[in-house]
Simulated assay, not measured.
Amino acid sequence: MRKTLYTNKKIKLLISNIIYDIQNYNFTISKYVENIDKTDEINEDKNSIIRQSFLINITMKALNDFNDITLGNLSLNRNIDNINILMNNVIDNCYSLFISKRVKIRLGEEINSNFNVLIDKNKISNSIYYVFLFIYNSIKPNGFIDVSYSFVNYDDERFLFFNDKNNLLNFSKDNILISISFDSNNIPEDIKRKLFKTPLISYNGRHFNNIFLYTAYYIITKHSGNIWFDSIGSKRRINIIFPIKSGL
């Protein structure tokens, strides 16, 4: 079974070669969107243009965050924020993207409490966007994305493998687990373990452009959280965990 792994050095070179063109394209399509309702000369599908603009903007954020990560100068401006509000804002902002694939997002029953965590709001918001963008690229049309929350304890046996207690913030033992499940083609188990830690993977003729997940993983773990794949029935699931204080 042939596997090819691309290192940070190669992906940094690739990004340095394309980022200038992407920035120009981002500027052009942003101006295009600004004037889309001001002229009758634009015959293309407006929703398609707006969707492209959204994807380019998120991609630019990912490239900028990735550049910070590879240079080792990612800075975090930590504040107490409500993770529940942040998640709802991310879902609201990306909802129209998934409608274009006829995909619906379902929120599970919310816990009647606030989930406050010491985070860099913008970086965490970006990282969750990147997770949804990876899902968008891999999800089957006419499907559902199910988002649910639950409280967990980092001392639970299930999380001992993921938990580095030396890096945990001085919070209570409670943590909030955000689970995002979706229908997609099967991803081999050994690839799931690498998707968060290797920028680009080519596997047996299949390609996974996972710069979004790679960047999200780094940001989330820097906040004493973690992110990983598992399955629930026939669905793939991405889990994100943060240390929290409830009811602040």
Rank of each mutant, 00 (worst) to 15 (best):
R2F: 03
Y6I: 12
T7C: 14
N8G: 00
N8H: 09
K12H: 06
S16N: 15
N17H: 10
D21F: 12
Q23G: 06
Q23E: 07
T28V: 10
T28F: 15
I29Q: 05
S30V: 01
S30E: 02
S30M: 07
S30L: 01
K31Y: 01
E34S: 09
I36W: 13
D37A: 07
K38V: 04
T39Y: 12
E41W: 02
N47I: 01
I49K: 03
I50V: 14
Q52I: 09
Q52Y: 02
Q52K: 08
L55D: 09
I56N: 06
I56T: 05
N57S: 13
K61I: 04
A62T: 05
D65V: 00
D65P: 10
N67P: 01
N67H: 12
T70M: 13
T70P: 06
L71F: 14
N73Y: 00
S75W: 04
S75K: 14
L76N: 00
L76S: 09
R78Q: 02
N79E: 15
N82L: 11
N84G: 14
I85G: 08
M87P: 02
N88F: 00
C94H: 11
Y95E: 03
L97Q: 00
L97N: 05
R102S: 07
I105F: 08
L107M: 14
L107G: 01
L107K: 14
E109N: 10
N112V: 02
S113Q: 10
S113I: 04
N114I: 12
F115R: 06
N116D: 15
V117W: 00
N122V: 07
K123I: 04
I124M: 15
S125Y: 15
F132V: 01
L133R: 13
F134N: 00
S138P: 05
K140C: 05
G143C: 09
F144A: 11
F144T: 08
I145R: 07
D146M: 02
V147C: 11
S148I: 10
D156F: 05
R158G: 00
F159T: 00
N163E: 12
D164T: 06
L169N: 10
F171I: 09
S172Y: 12
S172G: 15
D174N: 03
D174K: 13
D174Y: 02
I180H: 02
F182P: 12
F182D: 03
N185T: 04
I187T: 04
P188H: 01
E189V: 14
I191K: 07
I191V: 10
K192H: 01
F196N: 04
L200T: 05
L200S: 10
I201H: 11
S202I: 15
N204K: 12
F208Y: 15
F208E: 02
N210W: 06
T215M: 08
T215W: 02
A216P: 03
Y217I: 07
Y217Q: 11
I220E: 01
T221F: 01
G225D: 07
G225L: 05
N226Q: 08
I227M: 08
F229N: 11
S231V: 13
S231N: 15
G233V: 03
K235W: 04
K235D: 13
R237S: 13
R237P: 10
N239E: 05
N239G: 11
I240F: 04
I241H: 06
P243Y: 12
S246P: 03
